[in-house]
Simulated assay, not measured.
Amino acid sequence: MSLLVLVLSWGSMGLEAATAVGLSDFCSNPDPYVLNLTQEETGLSSDILSYYFLCNQAVSNPFQQRLTLSQRALANIHSQLLGLEREAVPQFPSVQKPLLSLEETLNVTEGNFHQLVALLHCRGLHKDYGAALRGLCEDALEGLLFLLLFSLLSAGALATALCSLPRAWALFPPSDDYDDTDDDDPFNPQQESKRFVQWQSSI
Protein backbone atom coordinates (compact mmCIF):
# COMPACT_ATOMS: atom_id res chain seq x y z
CA MET A 1 0.00 0.00 0.00
CA SER A 2 2.83 2.38 0.86
CA LEU A 3 4.54 1.59 -2.43
CA LEU A 4 1.32 2.39 -4.31
CA VAL A 5 1.01 5.73 -2.52
CA LEU A 6 4.65 6.49 -3.37
CA VAL A 7 4.09 5.68 -7.06
CA LEU A 8 0.96 7.85 -7.14
CA SER A 9 2.82 10.72 -5.48
CA TRP A 10 5.65 10.66 -8.00
CA GLY A 11 3.17 10.24 -10.86
CA SER A 12 1.12 13.25 -9.79
CA MET A 13 4.31 15.26 -9.41
CA GLY A 14 5.33 14.36 -12.97
CA LEU A 15 1.91 15.37 -14.27
CA GLU A 16 2.05 18.69 -12.43
CA ALA A 17 5.57 19.35 -13.75
CA ALA A 18 4.47 18.66 -17.34
CA THR A 19 1.46 20.96 -16.90
CA ALA A 20 3.63 23.72 -15.45
CA VAL A 21 6.11 23.47 -18.33
CA GLY A 22 3.34 23.54 -20.94
CA LEU A 23 1.62 26.49 -19.26
CA SER A 24 4.87 28.44 -19.01
CA ASP A 25 5.53 27.84 -22.71
CA PHE A 26 2.05 29.10 -23.54
CA CYS A 27 2.40 32.17 -21.32
CA SER A 28 5.73 33.18 -22.87
CA ASN A 29 3.88 34.34 -26.03
CA PRO A 30 0.15 33.55 -25.90
CA ASP A 31 -1.15 35.97 -28.55
CA PRO A 32 -0.19 34.02 -31.73
CA TYR A 33 -1.61 30.77 -30.37
CA VAL A 34 -4.88 32.39 -29.27
CA LEU A 35 -5.21 34.26 -32.58
CA ASN A 36 -4.65 31.14 -34.68
CA LEU A 37 -6.99 29.00 -32.58
CA THR A 38 -9.74 31.64 -32.59
CA GLN A 39 -9.41 32.11 -36.34
CA GLU A 40 -9.73 28.37 -36.92
CA GLU A 41 -12.76 28.08 -34.64
CA THR A 42 -14.66 31.21 -35.74
CA GLY A 43 -13.43 31.89 -39.27
CA LEU A 44 -13.01 35.62 -38.57
CA SER A 45 -10.41 37.61 -40.45
CA SER A 46 -7.00 38.22 -38.94
CA ASP A 47 -7.53 42.01 -39.04
CA ILE A 48 -10.53 41.83 -36.72
CA LEU A 49 -8.86 39.38 -34.33
CA SER A 50 -5.61 41.37 -34.23
CA TYR A 51 -7.54 44.56 -33.48
CA TYR A 52 -9.39 43.08 -30.51
CA PHE A 53 -6.59 40.93 -29.07
CA LEU A 54 -3.72 43.41 -29.51
CA CYS A 55 -5.62 46.72 -29.24
CA ASN A 56 -2.74 49.10 -29.94
CA GLN A 57 -2.06 52.04 -32.22
CA ALA A 58 -0.39 49.84 -34.82
CA VAL A 59 -3.65 48.01 -35.58
CA SER A 60 -6.52 50.10 -36.93
CA ASN A 61 -10.19 49.47 -36.32
CA PRO A 62 -11.47 47.32 -39.22
CA PHE A 63 -14.94 48.87 -38.82
CA GLN A 64 -13.70 52.46 -38.76
CA GLN A 65 -14.47 53.22 -42.41
CA ARG A 66 -18.04 51.95 -42.20
CA LEU A 67 -18.60 53.72 -38.90
CA THR A 68 -17.33 56.98 -40.38
CA LEU A 69 -19.62 56.65 -43.39
CA SER A 70 -22.59 55.89 -41.13
CA GLN A 71 -21.83 58.88 -38.92
CA ARG A 72 -21.60 61.17 -41.95
CA ALA A 73 -24.90 59.80 -43.26
CA LEU A 74 -26.62 60.48 -39.93
CA ALA A 75 -25.18 64.00 -39.81
CA ASN A 76 -26.34 64.60 -43.39
CA ILE A 77 -29.87 63.40 -42.60
CA HIS A 78 -29.95 65.59 -39.52
CA SER A 79 -28.93 68.68 -41.49
CA GLN A 80 -31.46 67.87 -44.22
CA LEU A 81 -34.25 67.59 -41.66
CA LEU A 82 -33.30 70.92 -40.10
CA GLY A 83 -33.28 72.59 -43.52
CA LEU A 84 -36.60 71.00 -44.43
CA GLU A 85 -38.12 72.09 -41.14
CA ARG A 86 -36.85 75.63 -41.60
CA GLU A 87 -38.18 75.97 -45.15
CA ALA A 88 -41.28 73.76 -45.27
CA VAL A 89 -42.96 74.42 -41.92
CA PRO A 90 -43.73 78.13 -42.59
CA GLN A 91 -45.48 77.19 -45.83
CA PHE A 92 -46.96 73.84 -44.73
CA PRO A 93 -47.61 73.86 -40.96
CA SER A 94 -49.13 70.38 -41.09
CA VAL A 95 -45.72 68.79 -41.77
CA GLN A 96 -44.27 70.01 -38.48
CA LYS A 97 -45.53 67.02 -36.48
CA PRO A 98 -44.14 64.36 -38.89
CA LEU A 99 -40.82 66.22 -39.03
CA LEU A 100 -40.60 66.31 -35.24
CA SER A 101 -41.32 62.58 -35.13
CA LEU A 102 -38.55 61.96 -37.67
CA GLU A 103 -36.18 64.13 -35.66
CA GLU A 104 -36.90 62.16 -32.48
CA THR A 105 -36.31 58.90 -34.33
CA LEU A 106 -33.05 60.30 -35.69
CA ASN A 107 -31.92 61.31 -32.19
CA VAL A 108 -32.62 57.79 -30.91
CA THR A 109 -30.72 56.35 -33.87
CA GLU A 110 -27.73 58.60 -33.15
CA GLY A 111 -27.73 57.49 -29.51
CA ASN A 112 -27.79 53.83 -30.54
CA PHE A 113 -25.03 54.53 -33.03
CA HIS A 114 -22.77 55.99 -30.33
CA GLN A 115 -23.42 52.92 -28.17
CA LEU A 116 -22.50 50.72 -31.12
CA VAL A 117 -19.24 52.63 -31.59
CA ALA A 118 -18.40 52.12 -27.91
CA LEU A 119 -19.21 48.40 -28.11
CA LEU A 120 -17.10 47.90 -31.22
CA HIS A 121 -14.05 49.47 -29.60
CA CYS A 122 -11.35 47.04 -28.54
CA ARG A 123 -10.86 48.33 -24.98
CA GLY A 124 -13.53 46.22 -23.28
CA LEU A 125 -12.69 42.89 -24.88
CA HIS A 126 -8.95 43.47 -24.62
CA LYS A 127 -9.32 44.25 -20.91
CA ASP A 128 -11.15 40.96 -20.31
CA TYR A 129 -8.57 39.11 -22.41
CA GLY A 130 -5.70 40.62 -20.40
CA ALA A 131 -7.40 39.75 -17.11
CA ALA A 132 -7.88 36.15 -18.23
CA LEU A 133 -4.22 35.88 -19.25
CA ARG A 134 -3.04 37.34 -15.95
CA GLY A 135 -5.20 34.91 -14.02
CA LEU A 136 -3.92 31.96 -16.03
CA CYS A 137 -0.25 32.90 -16.37
CA GLU A 138 0.28 34.42 -12.93
CA ASP A 139 -2.15 33.07 -10.36
CA ALA A 140 -2.71 29.61 -11.85
CA LEU A 141 0.97 29.07 -12.65
CA GLU A 142 2.03 30.22 -9.19
CA GLY A 143 -0.47 27.87 -7.54
CA LEU A 144 0.68 25.02 -9.76
CA LEU A 145 4.31 25.62 -8.78
CA PHE A 146 3.42 25.60 -5.08
CA LEU A 147 1.48 22.38 -5.60
CA LEU A 148 4.47 20.89 -7.40
CA LEU A 149 6.77 21.86 -4.52
CA PHE A 150 4.38 20.33 -1.98
CA SER A 151 4.15 17.12 -4.02
CA LEU A 152 7.94 16.96 -4.26
CA LEU A 153 8.35 17.36 -0.51
CA SER A 154 5.61 14.81 0.21
CA ALA A 155 7.02 12.24 -2.21
CA GLY A 156 10.55 12.78 -0.89
CA ALA A 157 9.45 12.43 2.72
CA LEU A 158 7.48 9.27 1.96
CA ALA A 159 10.38 7.73 0.02
CA THR A 160 12.79 8.57 2.83
CA ALA A 161 10.47 7.02 5.39
CA LEU A 162 10.01 3.84 3.37
CA CYS A 163 13.77 3.46 2.86
CA SER A 164 14.85 4.28 6.41
CA LEU A 165 12.22 2.49 8.49
CA PRO A 166 13.42 -1.09 7.77
CA ARG A 167 17.02 -0.19 8.62
CA ALA A 168 15.97 1.71 11.72
CA TRP A 169 13.79 -1.21 12.81
CA ALA A 170 16.75 -3.58 12.48
CA LEU A 171 18.77 -1.47 14.95
CA PHE A 172 16.36 -2.16 17.81
CA PRO A 173 17.14 -5.40 19.74
CA PRO A 174 14.37 -7.98 19.86
CA SER A 175 12.40 -7.68 23.06
CA ASP A 176 12.01 -10.73 25.34
CA ASP A 177 8.61 -11.83 26.46
CA TYR A 178 7.74 -9.87 29.52
CA ASP A 179 5.42 -11.41 32.00
CA ASP A 180 3.57 -8.53 33.50
CA THR A 181 1.64 -10.45 36.16
CA ASP A 182 1.07 -9.80 39.79
CA ASP A 183 1.94 -12.66 42.13
CA ASP A 184 -0.64 -11.53 44.67
CA ASP A 185 -3.43 -11.55 42.13
CA PRO A 186 -5.90 -14.29 43.23
CA PHE A 187 -7.00 -14.82 39.65
CA ASN A 188 -3.45 -15.37 38.43
CA PRO A 189 -3.19 -18.82 36.75
CA GLN A 190 0.13 -19.46 38.48
CA GLN A 191 -1.46 -18.86 41.88
CA GLU A 192 -4.30 -21.19 40.94
CA SER A 193 -1.85 -23.96 40.00
CA LYS A 194 0.10 -23.49 43.23
CA ARG A 195 -3.05 -23.77 45.33
CA PHE A 196 -4.06 -26.88 43.41
CA VAL A 197 -0.68 -28.52 44.10
CA GLN A 198 -0.92 -27.61 47.80
CA TRP A 199 -4.43 -29.07 47.98
CA GLN A 200 -3.28 -32.35 46.41
CA SER A 201 -0.33 -32.64 48.80
CA SER A 202 -2.57 -32.07 51.79
CA ILE A 203 -4.82 -34.99 50.86
Rank of each mutant, 00 (worst) to 15 (best):
S193E: 14
E85G: 13
Q96K: 15
L106F: 03
V108L: 14
D185F: 12
A140M: 09
Y52V: 01
N56H: 00
Q115M: 10
P32W: 11
T160H: 07
M13K: 04
P62Q: 03
N56A: 01
L145W: 10
D25H: 10
D25R: 14
N76G: 02
S28T: 09
L149P: 02
L49W: 11
G135D: 02
P62M: 12
T19W: 07
R86W: 09
R86K: 13
H126M: 00
G11K: 04
S50Y: 00
Q57K: 13
V34H: 04
R72K: 00
S175H: 12
D31S: 02
I77L: 15
G135N: 07
Y51C: 01
G111M: 10
L120Q: 05
W10R: 10
E192R: 13
Q80K: 06
S60G: 13
L44I: 03
D185Y: 09
S45P: 03
L82A: 11
V21F: 11
V197H: 14
D179S: 05
T19V: 00
S193C: 00
N76H: 13
D176V: 07
S2G: 15
Q198P: 03
L4I: 08
A17Y: 11
V117S: 06
Q198V: 04
V7E: 08
P166F: 07
T19K: 13
S50A: 14
W10D: 01
N29K: 09
L133Y: 12
V7C: 09
L84K: 00
L6Q: 04
E192W: 03
F146L: 15
H78A: 11
G143Y: 01
M13S: 12
L49S: 11
M13D: 01
D185Q: 03
F92M: 05
C122N: 04
D139W: 00
L144V: 04
S175I: 05
D180N: 14
C122M: 07
P32Q: 09
T42S: 14
V5C: 05
G11N: 01
C137V: 01
